[in-house]
């Protein structure tokens, strides 16, 4: 990879990290935020699981906690380039779960959206982009991982 290719992947890493970190912080700062509303409108294969979560107070609280702090941790990892690969794959998996809860498939009812989507939406694109960040070198030189790697050498 030449420098432009490498740095473009790094820019992608940082802006997705920004988005995820902000999503996490908003949830943290919103009083009484819960994934209840999102999960109660889950459609397709995860509906059963989502219902199980929202009908169990304790489980819902755990999911809310993991969601908020998971987003913050993944977002920070991506922006700072710290444990980048773990953060990218974890982020890809988490966002893919969001996608599966509400995929824009033919026949599934969706809430109001700002664009037009069929099977592919921005959520899916973000998940795949995170996967891309995970499989490409994306923390050297602009990331804390590069320091860790050097120290280990």
């Amino acid at each position: 990879m030449n420098a432009i290719q490498r740095n473009t992947v790094i820019v992608l890493r940082i802006i997705i990290g920004w988005h995820i970190l902000y999503e996490g912080i908003v949830k943290l700062l919103t009083p009484g935020w819960s994934s209840f509303g999102f999960l109660s409108h889950s459609q397709w294969i995860l509906t059963g699981f989502a219902n199980w979560v929202i009908t169990h107070d304790g489980v819902l609280q755990v999911v809310d906690f993991l969601n908020t702090w998971g987003l913050i941790a993944i977002g920070l990892g991506l922006v700072l380039g710290l444990f980048t690969r773990v953060a990218a794959f974890a982020g890809a998996a988490l966002i893919f779960v969001y996608y599966l809860n509400n995929p824009p498939f033919v026949g599934l009812e969706t809430g109001p959206v700002e664009g037009n989507y069929l099977i592919v939406n921005k959520t899916l694109i973000e998940a795949v982009a995170l996967f891309l960040i995970g499989v490409f070198p994306s923390s050297v030189p602009f990331g804390l991982d590069s320091l860790i790697k050097k120290q280990r050498k």
Binding site: I14, G17, W18, L21, L76, V79, L80, G81, L82, P141, F142, G143, L144, D145, S146, L147, K150, Q151, K153
Partner: peptide, 18 residues
């Protein structure tokens, strides 16, 4: 094995973003 100052600065590029 020595980490150069510039490398450290580059590695910290995410901090000002945060």
């Amino acid at each position: 094995n020595k980490i150069g100052r510039r490398s450290v600065l580059k590695a910290l590029a995410g901090v000002p973003v945060v």
